[in-house]
Amino acid sequence: MRQKLIITLTTVRGSKQYTLNQLAKYLVGLFLLLSALSFFVSNLLLVKTRDHLNGLAQEKLMLEEQYIEALGTQQSYMKNLIELSELFTETFYEKYQLENEKYQLEEEVIRLDADLNEMESILGIIPSPEQPASPEERTDLLKAAALQRLFLLHSIPNGLPVKGAKISSGFGERVHPISRRRSQHNGIDFPSPIGTPIYATADGIVERAGLESGSGFGNLIILQHNFGFKTFYAHLNEIKIAQGQYVHKGQLIGTVGKTGRVTGPHLHYEVRHLLTPLDPYPFARWGLSNFDYIFNAVEDIPWESLSAIYPLNQAGPQ
């Protein structure tokens, strides 16, 4: 007889007995059922997971495309940012240059205004506070005044005929160094070494150039100038111009000597107006920086008539 294992299960409803064979059948059936259920559940989860993975893959592709697009946009932004930075740097540099140029122009305007004020002061021009002129108008007025004054300074003797020389004998009465008698000295004497250059003190024409015998002048140059003025240069060693020649102010006309009645080498210099000898000293001091000086220092000249012939500016003779 086969041995069977009998399992008795007791519940409130009673007791049941199962043999092992029956239990095994149940367990196998249950296992198969669970296996089938697990298979279907696993397949379902697998399908869902695969779909989910496919979705994730698509999202990954979309994200990668968006990333590439964003990266390109970022690079474009970076390029634009670099261009903007370069443009800003260039603009800032141009702004700095313009500010620097503006500052330099302001300084130049200040210097120009100071120069104009100085020139107006030198030329005796008094700007009108009621009607202030522009720098261009002030410059034009200064040019006109300067041309007028330069014309007179080139027409009327002024400055020194010998550079750096001192005066040894002035204009007026004196004891003559040779005759020892009191006599009129019609010029001023500049003692200088023989050969020292002598320059014309105004534009003019050579009236005389040569030895003046019997006068004591020795070698003499006489220049005719505008408005009736003449200048005399006596006791010369050399004469470098000829009679009838035109000369300009500052031109070399001769050299210092000791010809004629002299005790030593020097230049005897005279200024005459309509044959009347004038003291050359005020004319030697006269120049652009003290233009008004001559009109008060020399009273023997009818300056008012000169003003009528060639109108001066506001600082002209009164």
Rank of each mutant, 00 (worst) to 15 (best):
Arg2His: 04
Ile7Asp: 02
Arg13Trp: 05
Gly14Val: 06
Gln17Val: 06
Leu37Gln: 02
Val41Arg: 09
His52Ser: 15
Gly55Glu: 10
Ala57Asp: 15
Ala70Val: 07
Leu71Ser: 15
Thr73Ser: 08
Gln74Thr: 07
Met78Arg: 12
Glu83Gln: 13
Leu87Tyr: 10
Thr89Met: 13
Glu90Tyr: 11
Thr91Ala: 12
Phe92Gln: 13
Glu94Ser: 11
Tyr96Asp: 13
Leu98Trp: 09
Leu98Lys: 10
Arg111Asp: 08
Leu116Val: 07
Asn117Met: 05
Asn117Tyr: 04
Met119Arg: 09
Pro129Tyr: 09
Glu130Asn: 05
Arg138Leu: 03
Gln148Ser: 08
Leu150Arg: 11
Asn158Leu: 06
Asn158Cys: 13
Pro161Gly: 06
Ser168Glu: 00
Gly170Glu: 09
His176Lys: 04
Pro177Met: 10
Ser179Phe: 13
Arg182Gly: 05
Ile188Cys: 00
Asp189Ile: 03
Asp189Gln: 05
Pro191Trp: 10
Pro193Asp: 11
Tyr199Val: 00
Gly204Val: 04
Ala209Asp: 02
Leu211Met: 15
Ser213Asp: 05
Ser215Tyr: 07
Gln224Val: 12
His225Met: 08
Gly228Leu: 04
Lys240Gln: 13
Ile241Thr: 06
Lys249Glu: 14
Lys258Gln: 15
Gly264Val: 12
His266Gly: 04
Glu270Ala: 06
Asp292Ala: 13
Tyr293Leu: 12
Tyr293Ser: 11
Ile294Glu: 02
Val298Glu: 14
Ile309Trp: 03
Ile309Gln: 10
Pro311Cys: 07
Ala315Tyr: 01
